[in-house]
């Protein structure tokens, strides 16, 4: 038994150390490249958010918000600074809410526009962001220590695999669409208008939206709303912009979610799903990504809906 324990401990240590060292080497090598991807924008967004005086308007959501709003126009119309914090729906609801909690002060306004049935997202992407911007570690929620450990191990294996397959074996120097890089953002945190002028039809979509209970997520949003209100900030909810073809695939599920929101959400819902539906040709590449100049059209509609509450 002793022999077995010694050997198994040695092999476990050897494999663990090898993997960890390889991971640290790869990340150090790839850090600069990673920080120039879209994910790197989290650094800039948080820096500006910290610097902005209150009252300010903060936009929260997935990429529908990143593409769907014209923040400079909002600043001009609402006469307050606007910061768009959105990056990707795959960051999940908790991450999105957690990342702004500390920076919201009295008098601030939060506009929440999350994708339909947004879940807790992809741990790999969250951990990648946390590497680029270490304070983001505390925005990530895991149900328990085991899940935390599992997610971190999977992330290490995934990053090593990616490096090995894409860089070592195939020397793939794939460059992302410039609209998905750090420099694609304007100072307010939107994707710059000139980078998404043309529609790339057919749009990427996730198929029909399934109807399900969203009560757990609504509870999370409500807790966030309570916290914000206790700080003297206000939270409003706006439905995400959506391509008409996608809306037609699942109108019942969308309306069902609308009713769940109306019944349980402890914040003002300033529009209805159909108000944020636009023809497919108004979108850049996916069913949630409005292109220029339709993001301004959407922004104008939202400002009009929002103004009655702000006054």
């Amino acid at each position: 038994m002793r022999q077995f324990f010694i050997k198994s401990t040695l092999i476990t240590l050897f494999v663990t150390l090898s993997f960890y060292s390889a991971f640290r080497y790869v990340r150090a090598k790839e850090f600069l490249i990673g920080s120039q991807t879209m994910a790197g924008a989290i650094i800039d967004k948080h820096k500006r958010l910290n610097d902005l005086p209150s009252p300010k308007l903060i936009l929260i959501g997935g990429s529908n918000v990143m593409f769907g709003f014209n923040s400079p126009y909002m600043e001009q119309e609402l006469k307050m600074p606007v910061q768009n914090m959105a990056l990707a729906a795959s960051l999940g609801l908790s991450f999105m809410l957690n990342e702004v909690k500390e920076d919201i002060k009295k008098g601030d306004v939060v506009l929440l526009s999350i994708e339909y049935f947004l879940n807790e997202g992809d741990d790999n992407i969250k951990l990648f962001l946390a590497e680029l911007y270490p304070p983001a570690k505390k925005y990530i929620e895991f149900p328990n220590v085991l899940e935390d450990l599992k997610a971190n191990c999977k992330y290490i294996f995934r990053e090593l695999r990616k490096y090995l397959l894409l860089k070592v074996l195939s020397n793939d120097n794939h460059i992302d669409d410039v609209a998905y890089s750090r420099k694609a953002f304007n100072k307010n945190g939107n994707i710059r208008e000139e980078l998404r002028l043309v529609s790339h039809l057919p749009l990427n979509d996730g198929g029909p939206i399934a109807r399900k209970s969203y009560s757990e997520s609504i509870t999370k949003i409500n807790k966030f709303v309570e916290l914000m209100e206790s700080k003297g900030a206000k939270v409003y909810f706006v439905f995400p912009c959506l391509a008409e073809s996608q809306y037609k695939l699942s109108p019942e599920a969308i309306e069902d979610l609308h009713q769940q929101y109306k019944k349980s959400l402890k914040t003002k819902i300033i529009n209805s799903p159909i108000d944020s539906v636009y023809p497919d040709s108004c979108f850049y590449d996916t069913i949630y990504h409005l292109r220029s100049p339709y993001h301004t059209v959407h922004t104008k509609k939202v400002i009009k809906d929002l103004e009655q509450y702000l006054e």
């Binding site: 092999i11 494999v15 090898s18 294996f157």
Partner: peptide
């Protein structure tokens, strides 16, 4: 022998569908 065992374990961890 042990090299092969380590390779097998690493292969599983690296290329296994654990997502």
């Amino acid at each position: 022998r042990w090299g092969l065992y380590c390779l097998l374990i690493s292969w599983i961890l690296l290329f296994g569908a654990f997502e």
